[in-house]
Amino acid sequence: MLLLLLLQVLASCLWLGHSEVVPSFESCPQFFFQGTPPNDVLNPNNPAWICQHYNSEYHFATLYNRDLRIPVYSAYIYEPGPGPRPHISMIEPQVSVLSYRTSPSKEIKKSQAVSEDYTNLNGMHAGRLNPSAHQANDIRKEAAFTLTNTVPQNAKLNVGHWRNYEQNTMANKNNGCITTYVVVGTVPGNSYIARGRVNKPSYLWSSACCEMGNNQMKAWAVIAGNENNALESLRLGDLEDRLTELYGMGKVSLFHGDCPRQ
């Protein structure tokens, strides 16, 4: 009854997603190569493991940083398809602890970004780690438009080299792939938007592990500073080494060991 009442209040002013916040990604391992997510080095102090569930189906997975109000990474299977780009971003009430004592909207804002955080941005866009263009149909594209999948991204980068990578490089790299597992993430920065509420990442990165059949595989990766329109292509192992240095918390592993690093 409490949850029903709170959702009724929320529904009057917010677009709601239907994600599942879980203790681990055991509920949605299908978005990780051999069911293995990145190792715990990337885990923030106040994490939310989200199996993104929409229209009675899982669509991708997100590790979310409740303190910085940005995703650490989103993991999905690359299956681009036609269809319009959604326009409404959903919040995820499941990420927050709701109670009678305070306004539900205030409780949600404590642990995640909301739409107003991304209004009137100066030189920044709301960038999706799992882009809707990489999803096969309208339902999956809508599922990607959650604020837990959104980060403040340099506007020139978002419409420049990063978009070219998402739209063109990924398609070319994917030639010959049967299944391509993707993990796209962030490195926290020292600045914020929305009056200090939402962290602006210092870097964005993307990695892919491709199964080609006949026990053949390939992998690729990129990283971009979030200050300008520039992007660097890397081998998967090189990206893991860079993230190990940038996070400074131990050796980063993004995929199961069978994914080629060189």
Rank of each mutant, 00 (worst) to 15 (best):
P37E: 07
R235M: 11
G213E: 05
V198E: 05
Y203W: 14
Y247N: 10
Y54F: 15
S207H: 05
A194D: 06
F33H: 14
I139E: 11
G237E: 09
E166P: 02
R163Y: 11
Q34G: 00
E245Y: 12
E79W: 07
R128C: 01
Q216W: 04
K110I: 12
V183M: 00
F31C: 00
K173W: 04
S12W: 03
H161E: 12
G160M: 10
L98M: 13
F145M: 09
N39K: 05
H59P: 03
E211N: 14
F32L: 03
N137L: 03
I139V: 15
A126P: 05
A208T: 08
G225Q: 14
N45Q: 13
I77E: 10
Y76F: 15
S89Q: 09
R128L: 13
N199Q: 02
T36S: 13
I91G: 07
S19E: 08
S56N: 15
G225E: 15
R242K: 15
T102P: 00
E142W: 10
V252F: 02
V72Q: 02
G237L: 09
E142F: 06
V72R: 01
A144H: 04
A171C: 05
F255D: 00
I108Y: 04
A224I: 07
P38F: 08
P104H: 11
H18W: 11
S105H: 08
T180D: 00
L7V: 09
K218S: 07
M90Q: 11
V252S: 02
W205A: 05
Q30T: 12
S19N: 09
Q153C: 05
K218V: 02
K173G: 00
Q94E: 15
E26Y: 11
H256I: 03
K156V: 09
H256S: 06
R66V: 00
S115K: 13
F32D: 02
T62W: 01
E232C: 04
P152N: 01
G189V: 07
K251V: 12
R197D: 12
L10D: 07
T244V: 04
T244L: 06
L98E: 09
T169G: 00
S132V: 01
S19V: 02
P47M: 02
G250V: 04
L243D: 09
G81Q: 12
S207F: 03
S27F: 13
Q94H: 13
N39R: 04
A230T: 15
A113H: 07
P29R: 11
H161K: 13
N55P: 00
V184T: 14
N137H: 14
V222K: 01
V182A: 01
G250P: 09
S74C: 05
Q94L: 06
C210I: 07
I77A: 04
D138Y: 13
I88K: 13
T102M: 12
E20P: 00
G123K: 04
W162R: 04
L121T: 08
